[in-house]
Design a protein around this nucleic acid. Sequence first.
DNA 1: GTCTATAGCGGGATAGAC
DNA 2: GTCTATCCCGCTATAGAC
Lengths: 188, 188
Amino acid sequence: MFNRKEQILDVAEEILQTQSLSSFSYQDLSDRIGISKASIHHHFPSKEELCLALVTRHRSSLTTTLETITQEQTNPIQQLDAYMLHVSQILQSGSKICLTGSLQSEYTLLSKNTQQELSNLCKYVHTWLSRVLAEGKKQKVMAFPGTSEDHASLIQAALQGALQQARSESPKQFNAVIRQIKVLLKGK
Amino acid sequence: MFNRKEQILDVAEEILQTQSLSSFSYQDLSDRIGISKASIHHHFPSKEELCLALVTRHRSSLTTTLETITQEQTNPIQQLDAYMLHVSQILQSGSKICLTGSLQSEYTLLSKNTQQELSNLCKYVHTWLSRVLAEGKKQKVMAFPGTSEDHASLIQAALQGALQQARSESPKQFNAVIRQIKVLLKGK
DNA sequence: GTCTATAGCGGGATAGAC
DNA sequence: GTCTATCCCGCTATAGAC
């Protein structure tokens, strides 16, 4: 048999990116997976544990993604492009938002552990982005004023916000943000 | 007597910016205001109506704010600064996020009317920002590549994302985004 | 406008059989 | 691992008295 735990996390992640932590229930999971609520409780006794597992898995998945990008692309511009493509695929697969954004909106409802794990995840992405930007500047293939860290913060925040804005507006708004991030990095 | 409806909306807005639409209840309102749940239903029969009223009021409030800024500040740079100060005050009054961001995260759960009103609100802010940026460029007090509309989208998305990121990180992350938005507008 | 009381539902979680 | 059955709770919403 395949891994049921992973299947539950897959479905939970999808719902979380479409709705919110408070609004989704074991019943939702039960309906979509086709096993009873009690069976899901067997794998994840509490909602809090499920949520923590979700964030932990997401962090390790994102780590793999970013490491792969770093290995496959040597050019910092292509590395950033690959990451932005990764983010835009979230939008294209339904009008989802990133897991991070969904959970940060309900940050005050998370357990201490989950908050910590979410914080680690964000820090990791920020560090990666900062490094790519610093490398791009050093190689003179990117140009931007200010520090790499600040510019990384801007890009990270903009991508998260853009996914959400795309919901009430059109995906065009999201594409506008991607376009502008790229334009800003071109020297003149 | 003061206006109870407004009081309810005040408290609801505060809770929504701290938690989420799904997680907050008439009981929460009842506890904080000191009247029964049934009394609140008298003013806002359903949660959906309350939510719509909240967005409508927020839109008119924001319209006033932006019009005031436009009248009081003649310099586009100062207009943008005033708006960003307005946003940063959201963060300073507790670790809140903007109403827009909170509701967009649960966009799929909103009624059609509320979705439409939220969309109008976002469009209005985007139009205002675009105009300020275009004016700044025309007066040569701002410099940025690309269109005013795209740069407005970037700033709007970044501010919304930054408020959320500030929760799992520190307010420093938010300040970094503000700083970088300003730096990007300086000609060199 | 506010209250108490309650309906009716769905939530998270558990017990115990298979 | 999965099920049925059930507990207890909190939710939205309504009825009807004051």
